[in-house]
């Protein structure tokens, strides 16, 4: 269960204060697939960063599985990111000098799992994403879709309770994007909670529930005109 209440995020410089999120409330139940949409600058990525403990909220409370996590220290947040959260990034964020196996192994090493357990998890994850035959390939030897599947395998190998996807199809052609979305559907069907931030309106509400952001807050029906004008209509 993910629960945010009155979350605010303000980026301050000497000259200005930018309200990236304000009065933001959201609850995501276990096993949900939630898509978060909104125009550029609406606060999608800020929301994802806070949800993934990559950034601290300026205000509000954030509970993950009932535990207040917003103000934990860096070490505790790193541990939660490693054990409970899986990340899928728009640019895949694979480490270019490591082959597929070693890329998937990175978070498992941080968890301190023994070698045999890590190997099994890597094999299982590669089976799920259909890349078992590419385990010794470097990212540069894979297509964009394959790279994103490796990134998904990296996230899955940690067996996370929450999978946070940041525009996971943003850098893929439509065929590869479909494959990735189908894969996310399968993962969600296995019980993993997925929150997917996307700009792509064809994916809005894909998992059954859509959250729309506008100007750093949840969009209301009054915002329909604005959202329509930005191409992210109601």
């Amino acid at each position: 269960m993910l629960e945010m209440k009155n979350i605010a995020k303000i980026y301050r410089t000497e000259a200005i204060a930018t309200h990236a999120l304000r009065d933001f409330d959201l609850s995501v139940a276990d096993g949900e697939f939630v898509t978060v949409t909104g125009p550029s600058g609406s606060g999608k990525t800020t929301f994802l960063n806070i949800a993934g403990l990559l950034e601290d909220p300026t205000d509000g409370t954030y509970k993950l599985d009932g535990e207040e996590v917003g103000q934990l220290n860096d070490r505790a947040k790193s541990r939660i990111r490693n054990e409970k959260i899986g990340f899928i990034f728009q640019s895949f964020n694979l480490i270019p000098d490591l082959d597929v196996t070693d890329n998937i192994d990175v978070p498992l090493r941080y968890r301190g799992l023994p070698g045999a357990e890590r190997s099994k998890r890597i094999r299982d994850a590669l089976e799920i994403v259909g890349l078992a035959s590419r385990q010794h390939h470097l990212p540069s030897q894979l297509s964009g879709g394959q790279q994103q599947r490796v990134a998904i395998a990296r996230a899955l190998a940690g067996r996370p309770r929450f999978l946070l996807a940041d525009e996971p199809t943003g850098n893929l052609d439509s065929e590869m994007a479909s494959q990735v979305i189908a894969l996310l559907d399968d993962i969600n069907a296995q019980g993993t909670t997925i929150i997917m931030v996307t700009h792509d309106m064809s994916l809005a509400g894909h998992g059954g529930r859509e959250v729309r952001l506008l100007d750093g807050r949840l969009a209301s029906p009054d915002d329909a005109e604005t959202l329509a004008a930005t191409g992210t209509g109601v």
Partner: peptide, 14 residues
């Protein structure tokens, strides 16, 4: 960015 990614997927500063 690679270091940021490592941090995002669970690396502690240590």
């Amino acid at each position: 960015r690679q270091i940021g990614t490592r941090r995002a997927i669970g690396a502690q500063r240590l």
